[in-house]
Amino acid sequence: MRAITKQEEQILLIIHSLKDRAYLVTIRDKLMEITGREFDVGTVYKPLKRLNKDGFLDTYLGEPTSVRGGKAIKYYKLSRNGIEVLKEAKKVQDKLWESVVLKELKF
């Protein structure tokens, strides 16, 4: 199991928080909302596909809707591996931040 990048970590967390409503459009919205930056559809699609290929994400299909021109939705959810890798990331993160007091964090 490989380590994941910061951006991948963000996306995995967002998918987790979106529960059963996680697909490209909602993921992108949330990502933009949290980071406050603009994301292209392609820029979000790319890591999703990669995470899926590497086994951190599972997909399932939803019903087509008229607003999508009759095309089905591809939903994402965390796989077992995805959850493991997040836990791992959190552990590392916590350890790194352990000794840091936010107020003292200035130059």
Binding site: L24, V67, R68, G69, A72
Partner: peptide, 15 residues
């Protein structure tokens, strides 16, 4: 591989 889902995503955002 993701032809139609992506198209759907674009449609949704577009509308």
């Amino acid at each position: 591989s993701d032809h139609s889902y992506l198209l759907g995503d674009y449609e949704e955002l577009y509308s």
